[in-house]
């Protein structure tokens, strides 16, 4: 095995990021939910109509379930985002994906997203996310160029540590522009 293969094999089972959970910068809130619902033209009244939502099984306004990933997305530093390959924040050197970038696999493309939702989040709740790399494929030839499929599992918890959702996410890290 080459050094690079050894290095990526060692990533499996390790946390993404600092190893500490990522805490959402803001609690679940109506302005971000309204923005989301407007962007997707989703008029489900449980997201924005407090009076109606109070009459449902949810008991009040809830966040869209598939907004779960949004709460803990990094607040970006816009300056230099392109130079960082689209990474929203400067790398602290600890990102396991930096290994791929350093080897020329700078492209990133999502390929799979699988959610299990335990319950919907109410206004005021703060989400935290912990992510572990589950698997890394062998090098594959894709239509975008050679690359590796990296799969991680994120567990989302509420203020009390209760699990509200689990997400399996797969991305392709690839060398752009190396195919016709």
């Amino acid at each position: 095995m080459s050094t690079f293969a050894d290095a990526i094999a060692a990533l499996v089972g390790t946390p993404v990021g600092s190893g500490r959970p990522t805490v959402a910068p803001d609690p679940v809130n109506q302005p971000m939910i309204r923005h989301w619902a407007a962007a997707f033209e989703d008029d489900n009244p449980i997201y924005t109509d407090a009076d109606f939502a109070a009459t449902t099984r949810f008991g009040g306004v809830v966040a869209p379930p598939l907004m779960l990933q949004t709460w803990t997305m990094a607040t970006p530093m816009i300056t230099g985002i392109g130079e960082r390959g689209g990474s929203p924040v400067p790398s602290d050197g600890a990102s396991p994906l930096a290994l791929f970038d350093d080897a020329g696999f700078v492209g990133t493309l999502a390929s799979n997203s699988e959610f299990e939702i335990m319950r919907y989040l109410a206004l005021g709740e703060t989400v935290s996310a912990s992510t572990v790399i589950e698997s890394i494929s062998d090098e594959k030839q894709t239509r975008l160029g050679p690359g590796y499929f990296v799969t991680w599992v994120t567990t989302y918890v509420d203020d009390t540590g209760g699990v509200v959702g689990v997400q399996r996410f797969r991305i392709l890290k690839f060398k752009p522009g190396s195919t016709p």
Partner: peptide
């Protein structure tokens, strides 16, 4: 942007 994904 509504999903806070700022990838260019």
């Amino acid at each position: 942007i509504a999903t806070r994904d700022f990838m260019p």
